[in-house]
Nucleic acid binder design. Structure first.
Lengths: 187, 187
DNA sequence: ACCTGAACACCGTTCAAGT
DNA sequence: ACCTGAACACCGTTCAAGT
């Protein structure tokens, strides 16, 4: 009589994501994930290929959720309003899931391209509406680089020395939104 | 007769940095560092408190070198020229030491503040000359966030999907330098 | 078909014993 | 004073054996 499945890939990924966020990347061990889903560590290998594969699945889950949030945020039809909503959504997501967000900047494994394309599609659409097609790609890379860099530094505590972090965020967002729409041919 | 020292903290840190850059963060093991300096792993604990302490020392070494490069790069006296030189220097450093640079964005331990202040002093001076004191802090955070974010994405391969990365870099740098000097009161 | 304990080759780290 | 081998408590992962 075949043994019944005690868990599922989805449950393993969910447990991994919870452990990652609550106790950090180093605490995401196969034994602790197994404990969380009620099996022994070797059984996890029926669900995931390896620990790094589990890590990849967890980050894909995070990416999917971030993409869905972006899609929901960009609903006004006005490109500047939508871009503000998308980027503000990034920040809210980063604050809600700091460990996972910080890891999204880590080197991608093969196969992450399609997901990256999807997660940036909403932003590309708003940027293209703002700048036209010629500047859209470098403009999108500018705003995403700034947002990711700012949030990475914020999550890492690099702004602890003082000053007003909220003002720095508003300043950067205002200036960059204004800067990418100037069609002065420097791009 | 006391045993003679076979290595030094400097040699341990240098070996750790070499291993980190050549084989990645996971390959920086105490046993491999010990091999590289000609002792056994337990002897390393006479030089560093722990593996994470060694990691911190390695990243401080990297930070010092980056700060020195920035100081050397900012020599023209013109703030825009200096800022371009500093940020271009960040990129050259990131390309030369990709593993270490990617780790500089990681969460800081206590005591890293003074080093962070030193490494950003040159940039703060150029930004202040460009924007005046009122906007200097948010303006500096905007350009550093963009540069760090861009380089993190570049090193992570996030730009593999196509387009001209060099153009995106030039576009972002041009637009941000122009944007932070506009004194329009939005900051 | 999935689950398990035992085992393997690793880790970081400690410590008593050597010189 | 520093170095060492042995040992400890962990890892990820494999695998034969159970149901």
């Amino acid at each position: 009589m075949p043994a019944h499945a005690q868990t599922s890939t989805a449950a393993v990924v969910a447990a991994g994501r919870r452990l990652l966020e609550e106790r950090g990347a180093d605490a995401l061990t196969m034994r602790d994930v197994a404990d969380a889903v009620g099996v022994r560590a070797p059984s996890l290998y029926k669900r995931v290929r390896s620990r790094s594969d589990l890590f990849r699945l967890v980050l894909e889950d995070v990416t999917d959720e971030l993409a869905a949030a972006s899609e929901a945020a960009a609903a006004s039809g006005d490109p500047v309003t939508d871009l503000r909503a998308i980027v503000t959504g990034y920040r809210a997501f980063a604050h809600a899931h700091p460990v996972a967000y910080a890891l999204l900047a880590a080197p991608h494994t093969d196969g992450a391209d399609e997901r990256a394309r999807r997660s940036s599609a909403v932003l590309m659409r708003a940027v293209t509406a703002l700048t036209g097609t010629t500047d859209a790609l470098p403009a999108a890379r500018t705003i995403v680089a700034w947002a990711n860099g700012f949030l990475a530094m914020e999550l890492a505590g690099a702004f602890r020395l003082g000053g007003d972090v909220e003002r720095a965020w508003a300043f950067g967002l205002d200036r960059i939104l204004a800067a990418i729409q100037r069609g002065d041919g420097t791009g």
